[in-house]
Design a binder for these strands. Sequence first.
RNA 1: GGGGGGUUAGCUCAGCGGUAGAGCGCCUGCUUUACACGCAGGAAGUCGCAGGUUCGAAACCUGCACCCCCCACCA
Length: 899
Amino acid sequence: MNGDPLDARFPFRPGSAESVEADRDKPSRKLAKTFDPAHFEERWYRTWEEEGRFQPAGPPGSPRFVMVIPPPNVTGRLHIGHAFGRTLEDILARWKRMLGYRVLWVPGTDHAGIATQMVIEKELAKQGIDRRQLGREKFVERVWAWKRDAKDTIQSQIRRLGCSLDWTRERFTLDPDLSLAVRHAFVQLYREGLIYRGRYVVNWCPRCGTAVSDLEVVHKETDGSLYHIRYDVSGVPSGAVVATTRPETMLGDTALAIHPDDPRTAKFRGKVAILPIVGRELPVIEDSILVDREFGTGVVKVTPAHDANDFASAQRYHLPEVVVIGPDGKMTAEAGEYAGLDRFEARKEIVKRLAAENRLLGADPHRISLGHCQRCDTVIEPYLSTQWFVKVGPLARPAIRAVETGEVRFVPEMWTKTYFEWMRNIHDWCISRQLWWGHRIPAFTCANGHVNVTEEDPAACETCGSEDLEQDPDVLDTWFSSQLWPFSVFGWPKKTRDLDDFYPTDVLVTGYDILFFWVARMIMAGIHFMESVPFSTVNLHGLVRLAGEKMSKTRGNVVDPLVAIDEFGADALRFTYASSATSGTTVTLDRERLAGSRSFATKLWNAARFTLSQLDGKARAGSLEGRALSLPDRWILSRLSTTVSDVNRHLAAFRFDEAAQALYGFLWHELCDGYLEMVKPVLSGGDGDENAREIARGVLERCLTDSLALAHPFMPFLTEEIWEKLTGRPGTLIVSPYPAGDPARLDPGAERAVERLRSLVTRVRNFRRERRVSPTEPVVLTVEASPEESEEIRTLEPLLRHLARLSEFRFGPPEDGAQRDVVSGVAVGLALPVGTAPADRGGVARRLSQVEGEIGELSAKLQNPAFLERAPGEIVEKTRRRLRELEERRAALGTAASE
RNA sequence: GGGGGGUUAGCUCAGCGGUAGAGCGCCUGCUUUACACGCAGGAAGUCGCAGGUUCGAAACCUGCACCCCCCACCA
């Protein structure tokens, strides 16, 4: 496509390959000082793939987790929105794989009939070629060539994202097997009477030259005019006035219609009108379905060939059809002097003519909802033609039931309503397309007009034996093949082992924009052809939007995920996607977020670097069982345990954002900002307690091990890179067990103690800040607490001194002039060494007013008898306790302030 | 015309019945021997408006306003 010189399978950044080789020769346990994702992304992807990690492992029958990729269109490159969904899928795939499931995630691409054909037509147009000059066969060849490039590009993009797809099972909707599936499905539906051929007014795109389905028409409110036109009527001298937004279609009128019960128009009953310009006689029909008594003049022009409602009316009243607009959007010979004119030009001319003839009584401004082609934005023309349709009603009913019963569930749940709404008002589906790129309709018409619909190309007509057969030139709507995807990829209609093993799939992840196009139809097709729903959960994600101009304008084209990966690394892009995956309908991406994720990746890298340096060649507690863990040890293990269960819980609920946040908060603020700082003195301290050091190292190792595993689904590359250094088992994190929350490690006591420690440290630091004292200057802290509290604080005292950089710490009453306060329930005094006490900068006053405000609220609450009576006792007690604490604080702060 | 979603800190968004949260941005300090893609401290929100339910509502109910999306054959 753009001459990508890279190996299509491993299209990673040039230059990285050499460094990878260099790395391999040096089995250093140290991480590079600077975090450079380009250094190892390719290496790990190659390793995983070569070692078959992306293929389902484990015996058939063991718990499995299966997804099929929503096949991207082979129209070009993936954009930043595709990469979003694929990332979420890969997070699920990796998570489930680590949980021990036999994971299969099937890759593939979609031929995307109309979209791809359009792209090639444009390419040809650049060379001044029209596809008709080329002919069908040559044209389709060109598309195939294009498809090969596009497929490679797409595949390489997905690889760089790190997606663990089983490439040995890659499929394309036009592959022979899948084409067979399409043909089989068509024939079956035809025989069941669920596919029929008929002449109807359909949505027609004059530019694409094909019919499209209702879903492919995009309605837009447009300013138009409602023209009032007078038709002569025999015996009614004033004539009849009809209102229309499309005067050019009047040339195809074959009747006027009135409502049978409308007194305004009763005078036209049984009369004959004369079509202006053309002079054709038009019967006046009475049609209560077509005519709305409330609207307009009560007289409607009937144009069967150019309006679906009029067509239906014409069927009822056996009116002739006159086609005045052709498939190219130009007026036909039937339009007489207007023949050859574009439909919109013709409108102007006809309006002019009517005005000249004094038949135009007015043109009121009118808002109309105009259909546009989803692909090329051309105004859709209702066009009378013979097309193939799927009778959807019988397919929809069981598909509705499947969702009602919960066999299929939508996440987020709100989409269920949307699904029902659409399914319960579903219309037949026009599936034939007048295109060249796609699955040819397997219908063969003989010289005598008999239609043969067969799985094998027939040699002779089934009805009359004629050997003069011609295949329908049309192809099928792309979505006709896409709807079979969850089972056609496994070889259906053949009874393959894969089909047996892997259908139905488990989860489908896709954008909500194709809920009707694809998801609903897959549910219908799955139930109909396979007798079971194609997946049990549909996770519909939002659509990606780029924030402002920050990304596109100043920084070039970040719309391509590869650009983002080059700049920030695949892990950072993935983490950004995960943390942006809220349950809303739009996902806003911007550079700042990407940069934030890259920082997070770097943070993990550096934390690992530090940890590895502490572990390298040093003894550590192998098992933590039965060891004398310190409070910080117990605290971080407790937090780890909580984080692990949170992440698992959020992933199970498809809350990738919450999962990412839990991971982020733990890793950054608890492990790095908290624990690492707390163990530094232990690790490097001169207290000679080698036992404590070993334990601390053991805890560090456990934390890093679990953090890497926990983070792996989100950030597979860098976690695997670190894992190698940590464990010496390269490329195995992907198949290592995912951490499970360990309730035995939950330790509320340790959490309380360490949180208090951290609050005390913070209080000292902000005391310094308020007094404008530098962090290195001495501060004295005194603490008055209950014996148990004091005991707990005493064990943390060295840490408290170190982290708060106290010059002095003691239990007992504050010294004179100290700032008093209550922190986590203990009374404290904060003092600067004698003589050097700069004035308080308003900190106390601010705190005091906050405290007083809250005291006011709480005491009002506690004075309210209704609250005491009706609120749960536990809440009342909590409120009392809180009030007592605040009062203590007020007292303490007040004392200091008065001095 | 029908249906759905939104309105919370400057920005992007979580929270959905018991003391307002995150990331980014902002302010102020800091060569604390993993990390300035860093550390520490801080400011910042009548949770769209009006009623109602409740001891208690950003969360539940009812209206209203404004935004977004989807569906629809009203000339």
